[in-house]
Amino acid sequence: MSEWLMLTLAMAAAIAVVVLITVLRHRRPDEEFDPTETPDVIEYMTMMIGVVYAIVLGLAIAGVWEAKGSAEDSVQREAFALHETSERLAEYPAPVREEIRADIAAYVGYAVHEEWPAMQDGEGLSERGDALLDEVRRGLFAYAPETDAENRAAYALGDQIAAAEEARNERALNSGPTMPSLVWFGLIAGGLVAMGMVFALQIQRSARELILAGLHSGLLAFLLFLVWEFDQPYVRDSAGMLEPFTTLFPKAAG
């Protein structure tokens, strides 16, 4: 099921539930029910619940957005460092250069086609990926530079492979979900309470009130979906996250 379809179904379900409950609730009007009066304490509680939940939901969105940005940054730094390593090998002799570039291509191909699907299944990074990147590092340090140009390139290559390893380690640390289960429980429970408080305000069946209640419920569903979408960027946005690899290494990652 596509993510857009899931979002559409979630918003439609939230709107339908609120509208259906409102219609059924007023199908048999209570003679003692006065829709023109709402106790002040209920209005105050509704306002406070809405404000507190909005703050919590905003912090959750900010947290997962920051985590998504950090994940994108680590992938970009890893891909750029490997690409820069491949380019700076131009100063090395052809046999050494081609061998190390082949090792880089092997690592990129494995990371994109084998390791990334495993990350989506919750398995994390593999020892095979570590071994392939270590093979690149060993190839770089196994060659002894013979000219000044090769010496300068060797220093830069050492920095680049270290940057790639650091970015890979960050990717390993951030591969899991950002939001703990307890926070998810609070967000979902708070959303249900926020939707339920609509009925405490004695909403009627007029078109205007039903539209506003539906928009309120749909917005809550959309924001919760937004948190869920950004919670695991390596899993739910794999195409976008892999773009640096597929752009810089079209043959290896294609």
Results as ranks from 00 to 15, higher is better:
residue 179 M to N: 02
residue 188 I to T: 09
residue 154 A to F: 14
residue 173 L to T: 13
residue 163 A to F: 01
residue 141 F to H: 15
residue 145 P to S: 04
residue 149 A to D: 10
residue 141 F to P: 07
residue 179 M to F: 10
residue 187 L to H: 00
residue 131 A to K: 11
residue 129 G to D: 02
residue 137 R to L: 10
residue 177 P to S: 07
residue 120 Q to V: 10
residue 125 L to S: 09
residue 191 G to Q: 03
residue 138 R to L: 13
residue 185 F to M: 11
residue 180 P to T: 02
residue 152 R to Y: 10
residue 190 G to F: 05
residue 157 L to M: 03
residue 134 D to Q: 12
residue 137 R to M: 09
residue 168 R to H: 04
residue 136 V to Q: 02
residue 190 G to C: 05
residue 141 F to S: 11
residue 154 A to V: 07
residue 144 A to T: 15
residue 185 F to A: 14
residue 192 L to T: 09
residue 134 D to V: 08
residue 114 E to C: 07
residue 173 L to S: 14
residue 190 G to I: 06
residue 174 N to W: 08
residue 124 G to N: 06
residue 173 L to V: 14
residue 180 P to L: 03
residue 115 E to R: 03
residue 126 S to M: 04
residue 129 G to T: 04
residue 187 L to V: 04
residue 151 N to H: 15
residue 114 E to P: 04
residue 148 D to I: 10
residue 191 G to H: 03
residue 192 L to M: 13
residue 129 G to N: 03
residue 122 G to M: 01
residue 171 R to F: 07
residue 123 E to P: 04
residue 185 F to R: 13
residue 148 D to L: 14
residue 129 G to H: 05
residue 119 M to I: 15
residue 188 I to W: 08
residue 182 L to I: 15
residue 169 N to C: 07
residue 185 F to K: 14
residue 118 A to D: 09
residue 160 Q to M: 10
residue 140 L to F: 06
